[in-house]
């Protein structure tokens, strides 16, 4: 399931409800992404705003989810991504995967995050004491996503 929303979500409640009642699930893996309160150079970040491309965001996330299900035997997947203005410490993204065994759950969760970081059309602008600054894409994100290309 994919949810793109401005509202906050309850990570504990999402985890409890995720794949519940499915007796084939032996392992669930969840990643939760939060807003850091500093930039790479140490400048304090009070908040950020996430812009996205409505329509393409959902389309790309659905494609990423389909690819994960093609690669691993998954019982369920969940991607929640927020947009709009978020304060330091706020939840941004939740990715959860459920499978019979832990390897598929761990690996597919990492895969979903790595591909989401480089393919889902979201952009962050950080609000700092030194002004607003668009976050630049990191080379490391590309290389972390690229290592899944071999599979």
């Amino acid at each position: 399931m994919i949810r793109v929303q401005a509202e906050d979500f309850d990570a504990g409640a999402e985890l409890a409800a995720f794949a519940s009642g499915n007796g084939r699930v032996g392992g669930v893996c969840m990643f939760l992404g939060l807003v850091r309160d500093y930039m790479g150079d140490g400048t304090e970040v009070s908040a950020m705003t996430l812009e996205h491309y409505p329509g393409m965001t959902e389309k790309q996330l659905a494609a990423i989810e389909t690819e994960a299900r093609r690669r691993w035997p998954l019982e369920d997947t969940l991607i929640i991504h927020r947009h709009g203005r978020l304060a330091a410490g706020d939840r941004i993204v939740l990715v959860a995967t459920a499978s019979a065994h832990r390897d598929a759950a761990f690996e597919s969760c990492r895969f979903l995050m790595d591909w989401l970081k480089t393919k889902a059309p979201f952009w962050k602008i950080e609000h700092t004491s030194a002004g607003d600054r668009w976050v630049e894409a990191k080379e490391a994100d590309e290389s972390q996503a690229a290592r899944w290309n071999k599979a």
Binding site: L50, M56, K59, H81, T118, P121, F122, W123, A137
Partner: peptide
């Protein structure tokens, strides 16, 4: 570049009725 909400290269065809988007490398997650 995205054409009709899928990533596309500079040689991708475009025409009347298409939706073409331009943006910097993405930074979500």
């Amino acid at each position: 570049v995205a054409v009709n909400q899928d990533y596309a290269g500079l040689d991708h065809c475009v025409g009347t009725g298409d939706e073409v988007a331009f943006f910097p490398p993405v930074t979500g997650g």
